[in-house]
Amino acid sequence: MTSVLEVKELSKSFGGNHAVNNVSFAVGAGELLALIGPNGAGKTTCFNMLMGQLAPDAGEVLLDGENLVGLPPRAIWRKGVGRTFQITATYPSMTVVENVQMAIMSDKKRLFSFLPYARNLYREEAVTLLDLVGMAEQADRAAAILAYGDLKRLELAIALAHKPRLLLMDEPTAGMAPSERIKLMQLTADIVADKGISVLFTEHDMDVVFAHAHRVMVLNRGEIIANGSVDEVRDDPLVREVYLGGGTVFADKEESENA
């Protein structure tokens, strides 16, 4: 399997504490890869390094063989990596469709263009994307007044705006009702399957993980302790030990995580 993303010996420590220690893995083309682990395992740190928000102490992040380490988030995005945030980040002063248009304008390098009306630019493309996530009828509402689940879907539409090859989703279903979680993840799975996008996501809700992930990696204390199919990981005694022995259960609803 060709891999889109390859992570080699990635490390980061904060004041002697190894948040991420020598982590290596790869994301295959079209693969839906889940990164799980108890709180403080280093998932978000890992994510932030992949997205360029945090500089690793050592290691490489290769996107189709090209090293992303040292690039700022916006450059990594331009290379074809989209992301959603654990706590949604949208532009509350704009309408739903404008949020998506903004990302398309950025992709088309129209950020410094003064002449056209932004609201007319790439509106159709944006509405198509909204349609994809089932938000088309809300296109002209203010993003500020959306329900949380809708914001998550809007974020997904934004993340798809520049036709990414890889999508990084940090707890895509955090803060949603359980029934909504499955729906959103199903939607995501369908879209990426359709478009051939690879996805790396972290998740607390094991139902979501086991229902949709092609493969699961388990991070504990900054190290990968398991990496395999859903069934393999579920039956892994070490994983059970980490989750159960650490006082954390699979159904943990805790949303927050230390960076």
Binding site: F85, P92, S93, A118
Partner: peptide, 20 residues
């Protein structure tokens, strides 16, 4: 204009803006 929107985007959510 797109520029004005980019400016508002940078204000509304710098993290989102940088990530797009």
């Amino acid at each position: 204009s797109p520029f004005g929107y980019a400016l508002r985007a940078s204000r509304d959510s710098a993290g989102r803006a940088e990530a797009t």
